Amino acid sequence: MSCLRTSRYVSTAGLLTTTRAYTSPSSSIQELNRYDNLPSNSRVFSLIQPTGRIHLGNYLGAVKSWRTLSNSNPDSEFLFGIADLHAFTSYKPAAELKDNRYQAIASLLAGGLDTTKCTLYFQSSVPEHSELNWYLTCMTSMGQLNRMTQWKSKAQQSQNSSITDEKVMESTKAGVFCYPALQAADILLYRATHVPVGDDQSQHLELCRNIAKSFNNTYNVNYFPLPKTLLTPAKKILSLKNPEKKMSKSDPVQASCVYVTDSPEDIQLKIRKATTDSIQGAWSFDPVTRPGVSNLINIISGLTNESIEETVASIQHLKDHKSLKDYVAKLIIDEFHDKRQLYDELLKNRDYLDSVCKQGRDKARELASVNIGDIKSIVGMD
């Protein structure tokens, strides 16, 4: 599979060199069976929201994948960070937001991200994100944003809701409605070729590609590559108490969520109380009829790097639900043991966290400032 990165836009003696508009690749989704099969010279970009300490779903869905990708592909470039501008779409007291931002950085470092192999920074520390967001928002129709489904969830509206409904309009903040345009700006600012995201963000990546195509066609340039959605092996981790919904820090039932910072005793207790079923006999992966057991199998698969099929085969010796839960709890405890200790140490050293973020900011801005300069030249804002 060929790399999607295009040659840099060229500006010489005030004259812009343009090429034909970018055309879409045959597939916008790449599924990695192995972490080391990225095309050479790819640029991978992803952000995580600062919701404080990370939970098992965050770790398997983002942090572990980011670590493995950046460690396995030395000839590619990786930019990872904290989406604190996105976090501003819902109110948090200033002190809480600041603490959450530090906890998120500490979690990524404790999770094993190596800053010699990736750029790690706060989104808000690179103002080019906001500048490109404005240009792209002006090019994005209300209809495109209205068709996105996540703003409806965030605004606590039904999936049949429309922003044209007066009650919906009055109760929905503009930032919640428009944030997919900022998400596109985040990605396109660095001309990323691949974006690892969960299934729930695939719709936003398609919008991002549409915005990139619209920009390229409008200005008759070949500037933005069309980023591929990168589906990594980790699957969505569900609530331990209600495996019909995603594991989430906001869940009022705290036993539904395992955190990297949980003690071994807390992890054992939460897994022991996890919802399963009463089916006896061989273990099977069936999210419809056995959602609780399937969620535990997903967790094992994510921690051991085995496929679902391999995982199911490997647990057949476990004789009952207690044995399965004990096995899952031990895997999580072993995985998080060193990370929990490192996380605690990092949070006590904010000077070190500040130095990491400053280094990442400077690296990100070096690239962002060049690209925003090109973009301003293209649109006539130079």
Results as ranks from 00 to 15, higher is better:
C3L: 12
C3E: 11
T17N: 12
T23M: 10
P25M: 00
S28K: 04
E31N: 06
L32G: 09
R34K: 15
Y35L: 12
P39R: 08
R43S: 04
R43D: 00
F45T: 05
L47P: 06
P50W: 07
G61A: 01
K64W: 03
W66T: 09
R67C: 13
T68E: 14
P74R: 13
K92T: 06
K92Q: 15
A95M: 04
E96G: 00
D114W: 04
T116N: 15
T116D: 15
V126G: 01
V126M: 06
V126D: 03
E128W: 07
H129G: 02
H129M: 01
N133E: 14
N133V: 00
W134D: 06
Y135K: 10
C138V: 00
Q144D: 14
N146I: 01
R147M: 06
T149E: 06
Q150P: 12
A155G: 07
Q156F: 10
Q156A: 13
Q156V: 06
S158R: 02
S162E: 10
I163R: 00
T164G: 00
T164M: 10
T164P: 00
E170D: 14
P180H: 02
Q183W: 01
V197N: 05
D199F: 01
D199P: 00
I211Y: 05
K228T: 12
T229N: 09
L231I: 15
K235C: 07
K236H: 05
P243W: 03
P243A: 08
E244F: 04
E244N: 15
K246R: 13
K246S: 10
P252M: 08
C257S: 11
T261E: 12
P264I: 02
T276P: 13
G292E: 06
S294R: 03
E306M: 15
I308L: 14
E309F: 00
V312Q: 09
A313S: 14
K319Q: 13
L324C: 08
K325G: 08
Y327N: 09
E335C: 09
D338V: 04
K339M: 13
Q341C: 11
L342D: 09
S355D: 11
R365L: 12
E366N: 14
L367V: 15
L367K: 15
N371S: 07
I375Y: 11
